[in-house]
């Protein structure tokens, strides 16, 4: 510091006494409000670092702060809080029969809301957000059901799934008629023509006629004599407009040739009973419930 404070002639401001090539720096200190705010933030930072998780103490450890706060803990706490708030209704759902849930407006509304959320989390990847399915993944809003559309049938399907390792899983198999040599190419073509004929779409009447006999021998035991299907073995209807794997001739031929064995997880293994019930009521309420 120079002993004598120099003042800039033009602005009248004090200089710092620093000079570079004739350029002198004016002494314009930070406003005091700014400076004190800065000091307050420093103090705040120190206090914060002591109270909250702030610095690492090793490769896998950190100083957790005196008040033991963590964002994950906060999330867990609010999740627990939400679960506690829902608990009375969830308990009622868990204790109630499916029919009771459907008949009681409060329970039904709760189950529809809970079911919608659980559906979005667990089912939508295959069945679609609108539950309309896609090729190979059943549509849940129409009136066609592979394993039945009653509340209990839907509950069974959701809880134990289809063709999985669960003991109570729904199980059946569509044979690989072509790949396993059960039918020849011509025979498969004939059967396909017959299947199309059920819905009046045959292109070759003679082939369809030959296929009728083959159908009785190979298909009717599961799909029914008139193609009405059988929900006991998950055999789809062949007399309707809805086709899980496609209803054009090429798709039908491929289905007979390679078989179709879609699978679904057993959700009772992953979800609690109340959630499975809510899912059941929700899926049943989508429009196809019987």
């Amino acid at each position: 510091m120079p002993t004598k404070v120099e003042k800039d002639a033009v602005s009248g401001t004090e200089t710092t006494g620093h000079e570079w090539d004739g350029i002198k720096e004016l002494n314009t200190p930070l406003p005091s409000w700014w400076l004190y705010t800065f000091y307050v933030t420093v103090a705040f930072g120190v206090v914060w670092s002591i109270l909250y998780p702030s610095f690492p103490t090793g490769p896998n450890s950190y100083f957790g702060g005196l008040i033991g706060y963590s964002q994950r803990g906060e999330l867990s706490a609010s999740m627990a809080e939400a679960a506690a708030a829902k608990a009375p209704m969830v308990d009622r759902i868990a204790a109630a029969e499916l029919e009771q849930i459907r008949a009681d407006a409060d329970l039904r509304n709760f189950a529809m809301a809970g079911g919608r959320a659980a559906f979005g989390d667990n089912c939508a990847p295959c069945h679609g957000a609108g539950a309309a399915g896609s090729k190979g993944f059943p549509n849940l809003v129409d009136d066609s059901w592979l394993w039945g559309g009653s509340l209990s049938a839907i509950h069974q399907t959701i809880a134990y799934g289809v063709r999985n390792t669960n003991e109570q899983s729904r199980a059946s198999a569509m044979p690989r008629f072509g790949l396993d040599g059960l039918l020849t190419r011509t025979q498969i073509d004939d059967v396909a023509e017959h299947v199309l004929a059920i819905t009046n779409r045959a292109t070759n009447a003679a082939a369809a006629g030959r296929g009728a006999t083959l159908y009785v021998e190979n298909c009717a035991s599961c799909h029914g004599a008139m193609g009405e299907g059988n929900q006991d073995v998950g055999a789809p209807r062949l007399d309707g407009r809805n086709w899980l794997f496609g209803g054009d001739k090429a798709s039908v031929v491929q289905t007979i040739n390679t078989g179709r064995n879609g699978a679904m997880p057993a959700w009772a293994e992953r979800l609690d009973p109340a959630t499975v019930k809510m899912l059941t009521v929700y899926v049943h309420g989508l429009g196809g419930g019987q």
Binding site: G128, A129, G130, A132, N139, V141, D142, D143, S144, R237, G240, R241, N242, G287
Partner: peptide
């Protein structure tokens, strides 16, 4: 109007909107 799905074809060929 429900937009997902836009419409539902029932097994008898009738069409349903929600």
């Amino acid at each position: 109007r429900d937009r997902n799905p836009l419409y539902v074809t029932l097994s008898d060929g009738s069409v349903r909107n929600a």
